[in-house]
Nucleic acid binder design. Sequence first.
DNA 1: TCACTAATTATACAATTGTATAATTTCTAT
DNA 2: ATAGAAATTATACAATTGTATAATTAGTGA
Lengths: 222, 222
Amino acid sequence: MARQRKKFVRKSIPFRKDSLISATLSLIATEGIDAATVRAIAKHADVTPGLIRYYFSTKEDLISAAYKRHMSTLTGASHVSLQSMENVKPAERLAAFVSASLTPPVVDPGSVALWAAFLNRIQNDEKIRIAHKEAYYDFRDRLEVLIGDVFAQLGKNVKACELVRLAIASNAVIDGLWLEGGALPDAFKPGEIAEIGLKSIGAIIGVALPKGAYEYENHSAG
Amino acid sequence: MARQRKKFVRKSIPFRKDSLISATLSLIATEGIDAATVRAIAKHADVTPGLIRYYFSTKEDLISAAYKRHMSTLTGASHVSLQSMENVKPAERLAAFVSASLTPPVVDPGSVALWAAFLNRIQNDEKIRIAHKEAYYDFRDRLEVLIGDVFAQLGKNVKACELVRLAIASNAVIDGLWLEGGALPDAFKPGEIAEIGLKSIGAIIGVALPKGAYEYENHSAG
DNA sequence: TCACTAATTATACAATTGTATAATTTCTAT
DNA sequence: ATAGAAATTATACAATTGTATAATTAGTGA
């Protein structure tokens, strides 16, 4: 008889790490943090539990890596929206950024659940606390730049501390809407959250933000 | 020799339930959800693990009860601020409500951690999902009434759907600021969050909200 | 004082958890 | 082809978990 089928296939280190991180995120998002046991994660990644320890020295290491990837996914989605918009009016760039942050896949129950699961560890896990802080300031600073650009183009002169205040407030609007949209997906119509976000941030900074920006709304209605 | 010291004291049902719920909340808030084991909770409540099952048929029951109490604590804190303000101008009542929601003890790391721990279960635990939904709408509706009163007093006519939108947006501002203030307590000066909240919501609804409302700010500055 | 009820503790148990280590299998270089 | 290194699986283990049940203890009314 022919040689028996292979019992496993060797994969590269990045591949396996990615698989395990993806499996971890997927499990936490869909079944909650308690479901993310080493055995469940391994099964989800089509791998044996022992392999986890081969790539991550401890489970906390894996969780920490998963957190970082989730955060970069979140912030990355908003960031991508600004590429190829170099020559677009500042107000439209800001609107695109806000829209992207308040539209699927950023606004998503699993995404919020994931974030909440990690937030729970923020107090007792320094790695996660630092990562959270960095992600928060990164996002807020980007928002501040975008808002500053809008004012610059309009010739408005705004004090630095005032600009910070507006960025904090705009960030809060996005966070709050993102949260509610993800936690209570049935409570809002599609597009409603992004629309409210645009109007609200527009009111806060005193500049109307164009609605229905680019890729995020259906073009047929424009 | 005298009779040996009592090995335990009998307490009333509400007392023990309260103790156990408090211990649960305290543990989750300070050490995270994983630390809230039946044994740790019992120890925290100066009780034997077995007693938990005497008052709560399952651990999930206890967790669920703890969630409800936490939510009513949160919303209650904002609600109390409106009592004995029946004859105050609507804008000041709204301001007091916002201030109370964005000031300790509502804004607090433990409070946010607690809320995040429960949010993680929102997808897979129907009881918690329903409780969350109710708490959200309860808070938002109250906000909507307060905003509506402000407009009524100013003689402004605002459509119902527009009022809802403003309540959603204001709620998002509060949620976002509350979250960031609790998760990153060092990132903000005392009173800064409440101040930003008042200005932002004021901008959103188009009505300046009085700062330094009542009990929440130091009276010496007034 | 004394039984009786209900609250509390004590003990036990099976399942699950993270981790450690030994045993295999695959792939690559020679 | 084959040996050796590296990746993967297999197995084991002690600790912890939620829960169930039996054994005590405290308070109450007669």
